[in-house]
Computed example of a mutant assay.
Amino acid sequence: MEAVPRRTGSPVALLLAAHPVPAVAVSGLATALAVAVGRGPAGCLLVALAVLSGQLCVGWSNDLIDVRRDIRAGRRDKPLAVGALAPSSAAAAACGAAAACVPLSLASGAAAGFAHLVAVGAALSYNAVLKRTRWSWAPYALAFALLPAFVTRGLPDHPWPPAWLLAAGALLGVGAHLTNVLPDIDADLACGIHGFPQRLGRTRSRGLAALTLLAASAALALGPPGPPGPAGWTGLAAAAGLAAVAALPRPRHPDSRLPFLLTIALSALDLALLLLRGTALR
């Protein structure tokens, strides 16, 4: 893990505390989905800004809540833990992002806005409480399932996405939770955090991550009407390979973030396959 700049309050430190990689990835995937379902330019922009503001709020609040644990664990990649960012700055940024997220979400309509705000609330509940319990997987499942709902509920007739897409989102969320926690399991247990992956242990968490990620891809390939076709089967095979690699043990680098980065790549692959098939998403 790379150390962050030590200059207190620097823009770089504030950006790093926001968990920029997942924030940009989730916002980009949501925006691509909005384009696919026919949201206009303004609608796609609203989706991008709403999801990004929600992700920023979740990222900054996560590091604020975990700052003492990160200090004890010696996390040099955490700006708050190394003193590169003042807690008051992170708190102000999180509150500002939350304040922006509400109107940006509701700008897509009450139904869509409610779906997205519930998803953000689920993520915040994970940060505050549920990450320490056996139910730590539930906020991820709910938030990822509601992301396509936010996109489609903003259309004129406010449709829900098909059940297979909701299921795929939930499964992808559980897989993302497992791969995200894998590098920190030992440090979490030392700090008294006993979430779902910590209770399973590293080996079983890797196996379950591979299964849930593959199941999400299978739902996207096999759930829509009609046969998957060559592109669908090829994509499913590629997804299986990515899921397997993400779950491989890494005894020399147990704190590697590669499994989570591969999960993001798998999400992008799943979405690309969905768009290539031209499947109706509503």
Rank of each mutant, 00 (worst) to 15 (best):
A81H: 07
D157W: 06
A170M: 08
L45I: 02
C44M: 02
T263W: 09
A237V: 04
L242S: 06
A246W: 01
A90P: 08
L64K: 06
I264R: 03
I185Q: 12
R257Y: 06
A99N: 00
P41H: 09
A91E: 09
C191M: 13
D270L: 05
A18R: 00
A32F: 03
N127S: 12
A86M: 04
S88M: 01
A128S: 10
P11V: 07
P159G: 02
R206P: 05
S205T: 04
L222I: 05
A210D: 01
S108C: 15
A90S: 13
N62P: 12
G175P: 15
S256E: 01
L266T: 08
V67G: 08
S217P: 14
S217E: 13
M1Y: 05
L222F: 13
A218T: 09
A115L: 05
C57G: 14
V35R: 15
R76C: 10
F114G: 06
A141L: 14
H158L: 09
R204I: 00
L248W: 13
A218V: 04
G229M: 11
R69M: 10
L178S: 06
T203Y: 07
R75Y: 09
L85Y: 03
A112M: 08
L14M: 12
G232R: 11
P159E: 03
G223E: 13
A243H: 05
S27E: 07
V181D: 07
L266F: 05
L16G: 10
A216P: 14
P228F: 05
R132M: 02
V174N: 04
